[in-house]
Amino acid sequence: MAGEIPLGAPIWVDSTTPDLAGDTAFYAGLFGWSARDYGEEFGHYTELLLGGDGDEGRSVAGIVPGEAPGRWHLSFHVADCEAAAARAEKLGGAVVEAPAEVGGDMKFAMLADPNGAEFGLLQPIGEGPGFKAYQEPRAASWFEYNYDGVPAEAMRFYADLLGWSVVVPPWTDPKDPRPYAALSAEGGKGEFGG
């Protein structure tokens, strides 16, 4: 599945939480997800799965112990994590965690956009990590960015960095000074958020 996710599109989402057991149980009850804890070696990073907790389970998200308040982090698919992080800095973003190889199956960096919103860049290595269930019931399917201003202006950074198409949908009120913007990867294919 990760190989089918277009470059620039969301490829993974995970959450930090001060209550790993409680939050894992909450999402299991809400969505029917199961969990696979990778143990102390990986900081008890827990993969959330759709369709079972064995090999039949398909990855939908991750959750890991962290400080309060818990937060969700979205990562985007890139071909070259180092090059994308360097480009993000040139575009006005900041590197929060430098690109590094993780677990032998990905390169990852955490960045902040010019408005301070944090996001990840993820370059799979081989089969690599990423959504194994995506845009289907009980899996991640739509992502929103909240901005107090004109959304298309805030999205220029991502369009330049990740090749997004940012379009004001025809159903948006033309008199609205801050119209909604729809986001898609690869030249308008694969709409994933707004």
Rank of each mutant, 00 (worst) to 15 (best):
Y38Q: 12
S75P: 02
S59K: 04
L49M: 10
N146W: 11
R87H: 07
S34F: 03
D113M: 05
L48F: 02
F131H: 07
Y134I: 03
E56A: 15
A140G: 10
A181T: 10
F76Q: 03
R71S: 09
F157D: 07
G93L: 03
T172H: 08
D105F: 15
M1T: 11
Y134W: 15
G149A: 10
E41P: 04
C81N: 09
T172E: 15
P10G: 05
P170D: 14
V96T: 11
G43Y: 00
I125K: 09
T172A: 15
G193K: 02
E186L: 10
T46P: 00
P114E: 06
Y145I: 09
Y38C: 00
G149Q: 07
D23Y: 08
A181W: 00
G52F: 02
G22Y: 04
A86P: 00
E56L: 06
G43P: 05
L48H: 02
P179G: 07
E47M: 14
D173T: 03
I11T: 07
P114C: 05
A79G: 15
G62F: 04
F26K: 04
A109K: 09
E56M: 06
E82R: 11
E89A: 12
V96Y: 02
S15T: 11
F31Q: 04
Y145L: 13
Y27M: 02
V95M: 13
G3T: 00
A133R: 01
R87M: 02
T24Y: 04
V64E: 07
G51F: 05
A152M: 06
V95N: 08
V60P: 04
G103S: 14
G32S: 12
K90P: 00
A61I: 01
E67L: 09
G57W: 00
Y158H: 01
G104H: 06
L49N: 07
